[in-house]
């Protein structure tokens, strides 16, 4: 029955993902964030980007017509909303190139029910990856200026998003 189909559609709400951006000082972050946003949208997952003003501005200027970017929000606000159980996501990608990034990933793992995907890059990627001990799927490579190593791993991991 058509009525039942409609009910099913409502119950099967669209999956959501939050991309938690770090400090934008490592060039690959902006590029990989836009790529990931596009991959998620292509998989039918609604991407939301959370970051500080600098990280968000880099993205908004790079995508002025919002072909890739959908919702963006302040990082502190995202942490507050998830902590206070006002909002949550199915998937969470945390961009990490320093100790602060590890702290944000651990925080998201503690406050959110989302499946956590740390995206680890930069000069100290191995050291940062070793600091992450909670259950997650790490997307990690030595990428500073060249996003291709991270892109390759994202492409490998992408089929798991639908699970």
């Amino acid at each position: 029955m058509a009525g039942n189909d409609t009910t099913t559609d409502v119950l099967q709400a669209k999956k959501t993902a939050v991309l938690v951006l770090g400090c934008p000082q490592v060039p690959v972050q902006t590029s990989v964030a836009l790529y990931l946003t596009d991959r998620l949208a292509g998989a039918g997952i609604a991407p939301v980007i959370a970051g500080n003003r600098a990280a968000i501005t880099l993205l908004v200027v790079a995508d002025p017509k919002r072909h890739y970017l959908k919702e963006v929000m302040d990082l502190d606000r995202a942490v507050a909303q998830i902590s206070e159980k006002k909002r949550d996501f199915d998937l969470c990608f945390v961009f990490i190139h320093n100790d602060a990034g590890v702290s944000y990933a651990a925080t998201m793992a503690a406050i959110s029910k989302a499946r956590i995907y740390p995206v680890i890059y930069g000069e100290h990627w191995e050291e940062m990856a070793a600091r992450i001990t909670f259950p997650c799927t790490k997307i990690a490579a030595k990428a500073v200026h060249n996003p291709m190593p991270l892109k390759k791993i994202i492409d490998e991991v992408a089929p798991s998003w639908a699970a």
Binding site: D76, V79, A80, I82, S83, A100, V102, S103, Y104, A106, T107, A110, I111, R131
Partner: peptide, 16 residues
């Protein structure tokens, strides 16, 4: 405390 715990008006960030 656990991550997200509110101190003053600040949600704490960190590894538990």
């Amino acid at each position: 405390v656990e991550p997200g715990f509110k101190i003053f008006d600040v949600h704490t960030i960190g590894v538990p």
